[in-house]
Simulated scan of single mutants.
Amino acid sequence: MLPAAEFVERPSVRRVIRKNVSDTAVSALRTFGRAVELGCHSAIGAVGDIARRRFQWRETLFQGWYFVSVTALPAILMAIPFGVIVSVQVGNLIHQLGADSLIGAAGGLGVIKQGAPVATGLLLGGAGAAAIGADLGARTIREEIDALRVMGVDPVHRLVIPRVVAMVLIAPLLNILIIFVGVTAGYLVAVTAQGVTSGSYWLTFGSFTVVADVFVSLAKSALFGLLVAVIACQRGLEAKGGPRGVADGVNAAVVLSVVALVLVNLAITQLTAMFLPVRLA
């Protein structure tokens, strides 16, 4: 026989667990809704500001240069080992099958279709999201955002839209840089260490990698930049609780950005595999 106290306690524990789960789910849905609303507001507001010649070009250029300065060197350092790893690992497998000339195709497809956009998103989600979340979070706890609203200035048009546009524009450029460095590193390893001729490498690279793959890669990187910017701006504008709240907002921005990138990349990969399968050019 169990004590009577346990019969009283168990239902309360179930209720607490049920309430916590339901509150978490509802809070997640509300956060997702606010993020979608902020993204739509930013997209529509950017078009309207450009049409009315009120777009914050100076702030956009400043933010864009900052994103480039903090991500360009890490992008190169990430692209080199990625291209080398793809070339070595795939090259060893292809060498066992007696098709060494296909290393160019494997390297090109791996870097362009997956490596470059994912690396771009991770870099922007790390350095870019942290910078945006910290900046807007500090402004929020210092009540600068409230002061802008009191003066009749919309923080979305003044602060959010320039950062979103800057990241969307910088993401494809960073993607191109990673593609160039990654493919070059894979080519050098294949030619110097694996005995692949230069002509066969580029021949298979051009045969399997079509222009549509490059456009999909650029589109994915721009979409990842949009997701990162919107999530980071939302967490920064909703920061509260002093410096601890800013730190929590930055951590949430980075984590949510990475999770969103992984899920969206999975969905896009499935769609492109259905409608744009790998084929000879």
Rank of each mutant, 00 (worst) to 15 (best):
N251P: 03
G225C: 02
C233K: 10
V259C: 10
K240V: 10
L237T: 09
A232P: 01
L256I: 12
G242A: 03
L227M: 13
G249V: 10
N251D: 07
V259I: 15
R235L: 01
A252S: 15
G241T: 09
L256P: 00
D248P: 00
V246Y: 07
K240P: 00
V262K: 02
P243G: 03
G236T: 08
L266G: 12
V259A: 06
A253R: 09
V258P: 04
A253D: 05
V246M: 04
L261C: 02
V254K: 08
L237V: 06
L263S: 09
V250G: 07
R235T: 08
L266R: 10
L227N: 02
L266F: 14
Q234C: 03
G249F: 09
V258C: 09
A239C: 12
G242D: 10
P243R: 13
G241F: 05
A232E: 07
K240D: 11
N251I: 09
P243L: 10
V254P: 10
G249S: 14
G225W: 03
V258Q: 10
E238F: 11
R235A: 12
V250N: 07
R244K: 14
L227P: 00
G236H: 06
G225A: 07
A252E: 14
L263V: 15
G236L: 14
E238P: 03
A253I: 08
L261G: 01
C233I: 06
G245D: 06
G225H: 10
A247C: 06
L227R: 01
V259N: 06
G241R: 12
L266N: 11
V255P: 08
I231H: 07
L226S: 09
A229P: 03
V254E: 13
L263M: 13
G242P: 12
E238M: 14
N251W: 06
G236A: 11
A247F: 13
D248H: 11
E238G: 07
A239H: 05
L261A: 02
I231P: 04
E238D: 15
V264Q: 01
L263H: 03
S257V: 14
V255N: 10
N251A: 13
L226N: 00
N251R: 14
G249N: 12
Q234A: 04
L261E: 01
L256G: 05
V246L: 04
C233H: 06
A252M: 15
S257A: 15
A260L: 06
N265T: 04
L237Y: 08
A232C: 08
